[in-house]
Simulated scan of single mutants.
Amino acid sequence: MRVLIADDHDLLRDTLVMFLQAQGGIDTESVADFDAACARITADAPYDLILLDYNMPGMNGLDGLKKAIAMGDGQRVALMSGEATRQIAEDALESGAAGFVPKSLPAKSLVNAVKFMAMGEQYAPIDFMTAVEETQCNPLAEKLTARELQVLKGLTEGKSNKEIARDLDITEPTVKLHVKTLYRKVGAANRTQAAMIAREAGLF
């Protein structure tokens, strides 16, 4: 079984490769961005599964997924993400993805998912696809728009405006505008305070 993993987070990528290769019988290659993935898809022998990170450089979300599917000549392509919503997962599956894999999956489940998809099945974790959005019941969440919530989540994860912009596929000035607005709405003076308020409210 041959698997290609494309993800810009070195630690996660290396850990995935290690877990998969430890299974035996899985030949795993890895790259750090979408352009490198495309180069491998074109140059290498066919893969049983190509696993793409939704937010890596050059990916452009679902556009990258569709491009990889089109150029893969029948190779199976799956999406992996720690940020994507259930709607994105559903759109990916409708676009022909072999599956959707949240990065929060335990290692054993992830390995099983990769094997499952490589054998021709479509995968998406039931609990993720059927989860109810709990943030809508939170009083603090009700003050914010969906985009402001996404930006606030980025702040709680210690991300810079540039990183949040890349994750959400919006411009950095737009992120700055959302940050300023959500500061006012939650009563925060800076990033650290906003993150603390969000965590104390049980948002993330």
Rank of each mutant, 00 (worst) to 15 (best):
L51A: 06
I170E: 03
V151C: 11
R86C: 10
M117H: 02
E94S: 13
S109G: 07
P102T: 07
L93Q: 10
A97N: 08
G154P: 06
A32H: 13
P125N: 03
A36W: 02
N60P: 01
A97I: 05
D44K: 02
E83N: 14
L51W: 01
L20V: 01
K103D: 01
K143Q: 14
G25T: 05
L79G: 01
L20Y: 00
A70L: 10
L62G: 03
L93K: 10
T156V: 13
D8E: 05
D73A: 14
M196C: 06
T15R: 13
L168Y: 09
A98W: 06
A131Y: 10
A188L: 03
M59L: 07
A118Y: 00
K162L: 12
R199Y: 03
L110F: 15
L16P: 00
E134Q: 13
K143R: 15
G64I: 01
P102Q: 09
V114E: 02
T156M: 08
E83Y: 15
T181I: 08
E83C: 09
T15Y: 09
D127N: 11
M119S: 15
M80I: 11
L79H: 04
I197A: 04
T156C: 12
A198P: 04
A22K: 14
G120M: 04
A36N: 11
L65R: 06
V111W: 06
T15W: 08
V3I: 14
T130E: 11
F34W: 04
L11I: 14
L105C: 10
Y47C: 00
G158E: 11
S109P: 02
D53E: 08
L144S: 09
M119L: 11
T181N: 14
Q193S: 03
A146V: 13
D73R: 15
E172Y: 08
V101C: 14
G61K: 06
T15E: 12
R199S: 12
Q136T: 13
G99M: 11
A22H: 08
A165S: 10
M18H: 13
L203P: 06
L12K: 01
V175Y: 02
L51R: 03
L79W: 03
L140V: 14
D27K: 05
E94H: 13
V186L: 04
S30P: 04
K162D: 12
L182V: 10
D10C: 04
A189R: 14
G58R: 08
G187C: 05
H178R: 06
P46V: 00
V186C: 05
A107M: 13
A68M: 10
N55P: 01
M129S: 09
K143D: 03
H9N: 12
S109N: 13
E163S: 14
P102M: 07
I50C: 09
A198R: 07
L4S: 04
E148Q: 15
R2P: 00
E83W: 15
C137S: 15
D27H: 09
Y183K: 09
P106W: 05
P57A: 04
R184P: 05
G61Y: 07
A189H: 12
V179P: 00
T156H: 07
H178T: 02
R184V: 12
I88D: 10
V175H: 01
R147E: 14
P102W: 07
L20N: 00
M117K: 03
L49N: 01
A36Q: 15
P57V: 02
T28R: 00
V77S: 08
M196G: 11
L168V: 08
E134S: 12
Q21C: 09
V3M: 01
R40Y: 00
L4V: 04
A113N: 04
R199F: 02
I164K: 05
Q193R: 08
E94C: 10
